[in-house]
Design a protein around this nucleic acid. Sequence first.
DNA 1: TATAATAAATGTATTTTATACATTAATTAT
DNA 2: ATAATTAATGTATAAAATACATTTATTATA
Lengths: 231, 231
Amino acid sequence: MTTDWEKDWYKEHDKMYVATDCIIFGFDKGILKLLVFKRRVAPQKGAYSLIGSFVQLKESVTEAAKRVLTEITGLENVFMEELRTYNLAERDPGYRCISVAQYALISIDAQDKELVESHGAEWHDIRQLPALVLDHNDMVNDALKRLREKASYQPVGFELLPDKFTIPQLQQLYEAIYQKEIDPRNFRKKIMSFDILTRLDEKDKSTSKRGAYLYSFNSRQKLNFNTKFNI
Amino acid sequence: MTTDWEKDWYKEHDKMYVATDCIIFGFDKGILKLLVFKRRVAPQKGAYSLIGSFVQLKESVTEAAKRVLTEITGLENVFMEELRTYNLAERDPGYRCISVAQYALISIDAQDKELVESHGAEWHDIRQLPALVLDHNDMVNDALKRLREKASYQPVGFELLPDKFTIPQLQQLYEAIYQKEIDPRNFRKKIMSFDILTRLDEKDKSTSKRGAYLYSFNSRQKLNFNTKFNI
DNA sequence: TATAATAAATGTATTTTATACATTAATTAT
DNA sequence: ATAATTAATGTATAAAATACATTTATTATA
């Protein structure tokens, strides 16, 4: 395919490390959380960081992120989307390394809790995060911003809930994403208008005597991209 | 900062080439255009590609993109935003190389036309693009999609117009971005409601006897992010 | 077994925004 | 003076967002 001449042309240029870091969101008891881990190896042993990995030559960046995510949470087929690259020449004091940040939404109760703990990973309230290494706090802030933007024009975040959830739980999730209160009548009306939820014949009575109906999420295929979703 | 032990830890991992490719949009005579260039060197000499460069160790990805953009168009301070990475292990048949795609919006009449031509770069109607090398056509399609999304929730694309422009020109731009006709009464009403344009005491009479008032764009600071911009 | 307590569920009126649509105005060329 | 041409404008209707209070189902307990 390429001639030797062409390969030489490539070789004139610089190579660098490419990493990927995962901003992993979860939602538990009304609180939006982030999975961070306490580094057990150098560099920066003992410091908090996002979960990440160097990208290997044989794998795509996406594959690298999924590899590390599965390794730590036991989950596969997780919703994950590229956020952006962090690419300043001096961002990593060790070597030149760019990082492709990706954010993931996972259902906390689907995770392999022991596996997570065995890797030194911890769930932290998004409003009270520790200082993270390098530019990882920037990544988290940018990911949160992206999540809010995305939620403003399409239903989002169902990946953060268990398979069966109640409308009040879904509302709590939106309140956690936006960090503001939402009117329950308007919220329900809006969500229902999208026709993406199926009401089950089951109730969750853990938070009220009356109980709230459980719903499951329909495939999102029918969603019109231009749907306005201002809540 | 880092110990030798830590440096060894880095060195266990793979390095790769990091490139950046620019999806450069322009707007000329009512037509949305893309700047592509005919490669004068291997690999793929003679083929069309986006304008791009390998990222050097001493520069950020953003700097690399601006370097090549200035080199080819003579422009500085161009609007440019990261689109996403293209990172499949097998995307480049030569060597492992990921590309950070960035899209730029430039005012065609501000470019250095001769410089552009001297680099073999050409403006092509976005609706009739030639086949581009590697995954560059994907990049263009994704960038167009992003541009449309962005335009749906905030005024965008003023960078594609000269400093002074008329409302009909601005409408043409939106029609080119969305590839559909827009009602001129509703368009004007909507644009004016944002309070981002200043009417000048000058008219452009190149397209009508009556002439259309020229406007300039106010700083976008006052824009509310949540502004709905469905046209 | 009646009552209190509690969160879930619902409806309506008002305001804002989007959409659809046709005429008049300013200017130049003839 | 008139014809030709694009720019500029307004209004009525439909759809969506917002603000707001009461009833319902259920359990615990008096």
